[in-house]
Amino acid sequence: MTAATAQPESKGLLHWLKKEALPLLVMLGLLAAARDSLANHYQVPSGSMQYTLMPGDRVVVDMRAYGLRLPFTGVELLHTGQPQRGDVAVFDSPQDGTRLIKRIAAVGGDRVALRGGHLSINGHPLAQAGTDEVEDFGRTLAQLDLGQGGGPDIQDLTVPTGKVLMLGDHRGNSADGRFFGLVDAGALYGKASRVYYRRGEGFTWQAL
């Protein structure tokens, strides 16, 4: 190959990079930013949230629920909502950084008691009349799994402002806030909104 033929080839490659590769990289960057800031997904690793979530479930996570953040950072650009009791949320464990999914059992100012796996908020039991395994959070119902007992009790805890208590629905088989403590409300990664895939059922669109 002569220098004369190599020069047009190098120009052609440069032209292709400008025309095709650069837009592709921009698109991939935008997709990554959208995934980090707007919506993502999470695969449930364990049975700690039975029966709401089962091992292997894939869920849609809305990262806009508690604040729109600058992509790839924790900097909040726009406040879009507060964590609410009963929400299922994704967060990093304050103990070891493992990404977890649990239910927001209580928010700042709540007085909490948990006995035998049954939750009371501000002196009011959440279990519905006639059943010990359904709790009414007002905005949503939680179907508990108490097949392995209720796990450790909580005696009259008042949640400080800016904190949340995260619990699993499988109360006797959940490493949750009873073990790693309270979580900063601002550190919640996002709200799990729907199950879109479940083993044995395939694709679904089940609201949480």
Rank of each mutant, 00 (worst) to 15 (best):
M1Q: 08
A4N: 09
T5D: 14
A6V: 01
P8D: 08
P8Y: 05
S10V: 12
L13D: 04
L13R: 14
W16A: 14
L17W: 09
L17I: 14
L17R: 11
L22G: 04
L22Y: 13
L22I: 15
L22N: 04
L22V: 15
L24W: 08
L25S: 08
V26Y: 02
L28I: 14
G29A: 09
L30Q: 01
L30M: 14
L30R: 03
L31H: 02
D36R: 07
D36C: 08
Y42R: 09
Y42W: 12
Q43T: 15
V44P: 06
P45S: 05
P45E: 06
G47N: 10
G47F: 07
M49N: 15
Q50N: 14
Y51Q: 15
T52R: 01
L53G: 00
M54V: 07
P55S: 06
G56A: 03
R58D: 04
V60R: 11
V60A: 15
M63F: 01
R64A: 06
R64M: 15
Y66L: 04
G67W: 01
L68A: 10
L68W: 13
R69W: 02
L70V: 11
T73E: 05
V75I: 15
H79C: 01
T80Y: 08
T80I: 07
G81A: 00
G81N: 06
Q82H: 11
Q82V: 10
P83H: 04
P83G: 06
Q84E: 15
R85D: 00
A89W: 03
A89C: 12
A89T: 09
D92L: 13
T98P: 02
K102F: 00
I104F: 10
V107P: 09
G109S: 03
D110H: 00
R111S: 12
R111Y: 03
R111V: 14
V112R: 07
V112P: 09
A113W: 07
R115P: 02
R115H: 14
G116P: 11
G117W: 01
H118L: 15
L119D: 08
A127P: 01
A127R: 11
Q128Y: 06
T131V: 00
T131Q: 00
D132H: 11
D132R: 10
V134N: 08
V134M: 12
D136K: 00
F137G: 02
R139D: 12
R139L: 11
T140H: 07
A142G: 05
L144R: 09
G147N: 13
Q148C: 01
G151P: 03
D153G: 05
I154N: 02
I154L: 14
Q155T: 13
D156C: 05
D156A: 11
T158H: 02
V159S: 09
V159Q: 08
P160G: 02
T161G: 07
G162M: 05
V164P: 07
V164G: 03
L165C: 09
M166I: 04
D169H: 00
D169C: 01
H170A: 13
R171Y: 09
A175M: 08
G177T: 04
G177D: 06
R178H: 08
F179G: 03
F180M: 10
D184H: 07
D184Q: 12
A185R: 12
A187Y: 03
L188F: 08
G190K: 07
K191F: 06
S193H: 03
R194K: 14
Y196A: 13
Y196Q: 11
R198P: 06
G202T: 02
T204R: 13
T204F: 04
T204P: 02
W205A: 15
W205M: 12
Q206Y: 05
L208T: 04
